[in-house]
Amino acid sequence: MKHILLIDGMALLFRSFFATAITNQFMRNDNGTPTNGVQGFLRHSLTAIDLIKPTHVAVCWDMGKETFRNETFADYKANRNAPPEELIPQFDLVKEVAEKFSFHNIGVHGYEADDCIGTIAKKEAKHARISVVSGDKDLLQLLEPNIEIWLVQKGYGNYNRYTLGRFIEEYEITPEQFIDVKGLMGDPSDGYPGVKGIGEKTAYKLIKEFGSIDNLLQNKEKLTPGQKKKISEDEKMLHLSRQLAEIHCEVPLEKPFAKDWNGVSDRAIQVSDEYGLKTVKRFLENAGL
């Protein structure tokens, strides 16, 4: 059976950058360009491929800060700091190197990598297995019988692997209900507030009890006076937050969504030398890739 691996490129790039930037290990090449994020991304991706053994691979990228969500809510992700100057040149560099390593890059202006991942996963899951590698828990809303989410943990090769069954057992809700939970509690990192005064614990409790935001709103008389007041005052923001939390699975993508994976390019060692990726070169040599 076809097995597609979808890699959240920006999530792995950021994770790799900040893991080494904290000790100022920017791994500059001969041109003085930092490469720590790029090298970490490649090591994470190649390690995941070795474990998952997919038949097809695609790497999805954010294509700039502005997306359709900013048109819906101007403050979406507005609270995030500007990227460090050492990371900025790595945004283009990582895609360039990834292509030379035989990765299939995907990104559409106006959409996030999550939306591209969601679009491919939902369309391909009818006739393929899908594994998604990321550090973003928001992707858990995509879980289906044929879709797994592998959340990156500390170090290389350590993943928190979620199947649909494990998610339902652990969270006691469905992946679709997870979107409603996010709508209620909001997400400070993405800058949408949800309902003011409704935290994570209460959001899970309410969705477990009522099943959905729509059913909750139809049964407000069953809420405590405090909950009823908070939700009534913030109902408009509740709907907006749920809309922002949901991954858009209809991105206009060109086929192929993913390309056959036949291993890294024969030129991978040469490319590593060309870009001064010493850590990656050692990794390739040690792994026999």
Rank of each mutant, 00 (worst) to 15 (best):
K228R: 15
K229A: 11
E176F: 03
G183A: 11
I179E: 04
K229C: 07
D136G: 06
I147S: 03
G191F: 08
K236M: 11
L223S: 12
E233K: 14
S241E: 09
M237W: 12
R242K: 15
I207N: 00
E246M: 12
M185I: 10
G186N: 06
G191K: 07
K154C: 06
H239D: 11
Y192V: 07
Y162C: 02
G118L: 03
S134F: 03
G118V: 03
N158L: 14
H248Q: 13
K220C: 13
K137Q: 12
I130C: 06
G157W: 05
L184F: 13
D115N: 08
V181N: 04
Q227A: 12
S189R: 07
A121Y: 00
Q153C: 10
I149Q: 03
I168H: 00
G211D: 09
A245R: 00
V132L: 07
L216H: 02
Q218I: 09
C116W: 01
D114T: 08
T163N: 02
R129M: 11
I198A: 05
V132S: 03
S232N: 15
L244P: 00
G186A: 08
E172S: 09
K230P: 07
E144V: 00
Y162K: 02
K201F: 10
Y162I: 01
Y171Q: 14
I130H: 02
T163K: 00
F167D: 02
Q243V: 09
E209N: 11
P145H: 09
V132H: 05
E170A: 11
G211C: 12
A128W: 04
T163I: 05
I173M: 01
N219D: 11
P175E: 02
L240V: 13
T224S: 15
N160F: 01
H239N: 12
G191H: 07
K228F: 10
H248L: 13
